[in-house]
């Protein structure tokens, strides 16, 4: 198929960017979206032009690196997939595809489609962990009985890959879905109880410090999340924070 691509180009963090138009031809419907971007970059390199910078790593929907806002939606028009899992069969011959980076004050653009998502790292560093004595005497986690429902909910929350699609989708650039998944996965398990209160207070405090917006409960994050993280986690985090504060 032949496509017209309108892509955000920005030389560096401080440069002002703009949407540039490119044409690609003979794109197979079996290609992934990132493979199509590879084709475009080869074309640009052959023409002696600067290739488009974009994040990618595992290309199998696990790492959370790929982060493109495609045709007005994070990770594109498909549901439950990351950009690397999006296939060109979702588009038609002759389509114009708009590709932009995540937009949020807390995710500044580094170059082209690459944004700095280290705000998520700092939120995790503030409390998204369990302090465990690793001297060799630690109890095997599998030896602690956990109700099936709690284990399932904790696992579902833990499937968050931290890609930032929730922030990109939210009209307020809110990081509530990400933070709530990380709070939930530990709050639901016995290992997370010791630091439960400090964790939610610190992580929400860091989320606010990073400048993410408030949650308006639009539900856009849940719909666009490639891992289907539920809004249940946000409600749980709201309860956790209230309980920790009072």
């Amino acid at each position: 198929m032949n496509l017209t691509l309108k892509i955000w180009r920005q030389k560096e963090a401080k440069a002002s960017g703009s949407m540039e138009t490119y044409k690609v031809s003979e794109i197979s419907e079996h290609m992934s979206f990132l493979e199509m971007m590879d084709v475009l970059n080869e074309q640009l390199i052959n023409e002696g032009k600067e290739p488009i910078a974009f994040d990618h790593d595992c290309r199998e929907g696990i790492c959370g690196s790929c982060s493109m806002y495609i045709n007005g939606e994070p990770h594109g028009p498909d549901r439950g997939v990351t950009t690397c899992q999006l296939h060109m069969r979702k588009f038609k011959d002759g389509d114009t595809i708009h590709i932009e980076p995540w937009r949020a004050a807390s995710f500044p653009v580094i170059k082209d489609l690459v944004v700095d998502r280290s705000a998520f790292d700092r939120i995790i560093q503030s409390g998204g962990y369990v302090s465990v004595n690793t001297s060799g005497n630690s109890q095997d986690a599998n030896a602690i009985p956990i109700p099936k429902e709690d284990a399932d909910n904790a696992f579902d929350a833990a499937t968050c890959i931290g890609c930032g699609a929730c922030v990109a989708a939210c009209k307020n650039s809110s990081a509530m879905l990400f933070v709530s998944a990380k709070v939930s996965q530990l709050a639901l398990l016995p290992q997370g109880q010791v630091e439960r209160k400090e964790r939610v207070l610190s992580m929400v405090d860091q989320m606010d410090t990073e400048g993410f917006g408030n949650c308006s409960n639009t539900g856009a994050c849940e719909i666009e999340c490639p891992k289907g993280i539920s809004l249940d986690n946000i409600a749980r985090m709201n309860r956790e924070l209230l309980s920790a504060k009072i």
Partner: peptide, 10 residues
């Protein structure tokens, strides 16, 4: 965003 489709998700 230069191009956005919020009606798809909210």
């Amino acid at each position: 965003y230069a191009y956005s489709k919020p009606e798809e998700n909210s």
